[in-house]
């Protein structure tokens, strides 16, 4: 049997983490969670995931910083990174793309669209 796609969600809001865990596990994904960019970086130093799904506004290390740091490491240079944010301005999206993000999803998210996006970037559709 094929192994479930493993996702690391990065969000400082406990309410959002609970909602994401529920939506993603219901759709068959394995979910790991970090509370901010720094915790995500620390966790990724010794763990593997298929996709990183990150918020932008977070304490310590924000989403842009996380993407830049991951892309500067050979281990994470090709890892799909999706941003999940209430923001939807072209300027912010451009900044994320320039930092190396794979895609941008606008909150409030639609579970089906989110699931499809994860499958597309992991080529598991």
């Amino acid at each position: 049997m094929k192994q479930a796609t493993r996702i690391l969600t990065v969000d400082d809001s406990p309410s959002m983490r609970a909602l994401l865990r529920n939506a993603l596990t219901t759709n068959g994904f394995e979910v790991e969670q970090a509370e901010d960019g720094q915790e995500a970086l620390d966790w990724l130093a010794s763990n593997e995931v298929d996709v990183v799904l990150t918020d932008i506004n977070m304490p310590r290390l924000d989403g842009f910083g996380l993407i830049e740091r991951l892309r500067s490491s050979a281990r994470h240079s090709n890892r799909p990174i999706l941003v999940l944010s209430t923001e939807s301005s072209d300027e912010k999206k451009r900044r994320a793309r320039d930092a190396g993000a794979t895609g941008w999803i606008v909150k409030p998210f639609d579970a089906e669209k989110l699931t499809n996006a994860v499958r597309r970037v992991t080529h598991s559709a």
């Binding site: 999206k93 606008v106 998210f109 639609d110 669209k113």
Partner: peptide
């Protein structure tokens, strides 16, 4: 636009 996905 909520829930919209943009892949770069």
């Amino acid at each position: 636009g909520s829930g919209d996905v943009t892949l770069f």
